[in-house]
């Protein structure tokens, strides 16, 4: 399990019904690319977040396939349409099988 992985997500507290909001997401993760070598000259194996999804009330907003060229502490910004009040679910998938999730609620107003 990758240690010390922590998500940080910005979702506005409210939106107009049907409005568009901007979401910013960050997660602390080393994103070991598989290119680096250790002091003995052995390649450090790849270990990255390989996929990120955002869903709202069960419907998909964005689904990102992530490759090793994405920087350490991956950052993604994108827009979402908010048809009604509900929950945004953010999911990050790790090469090592771990899945990190966080949820943010939004109200209409």
């Amino acid at each position: 399990m990758a240690s010390g992985v922590k998500p940080r997500v910005k979702v506005p507290k409210t939106a107009a019904a049907g409005g568009v909001i901007t979401i910013k997401t960050l997660i602390s993760h080393k994103m070991e690319s598989g290119q680096r070598k250790d002091s003995d000259g052995n390649t450090i194996p790849r270990s990255i977040i390989n996929r990120f999804t955002c869903d709202f009330n069960g419907e998909n907003v964005i689904d990102i396939t992530v490759e090793p060229a994405v920087s350490t502490n991956p950052f993604f910004q994108f827009d979402a349409t908010v048809p009604e009040a509900g929950d945004f679910k953010f999911t990050w998938y790790d090469d090592d099988g771990d899945v990190y999730e966080t949820t943010k609620s939004i109200a209409i107003g």
């Binding site: 940080r8 910005k10 910013k24 950052f75």
Partner: peptide, 14 residues
């Protein structure tokens, strides 16, 4: 410029 663009802030959370 923004505390959600600033990657240092996830370490403040930690």
């Amino acid at each position: 410029l923004d505390d959600f663009d600033n990657p240092g802030m996830v370490f403040v959370d930690k």
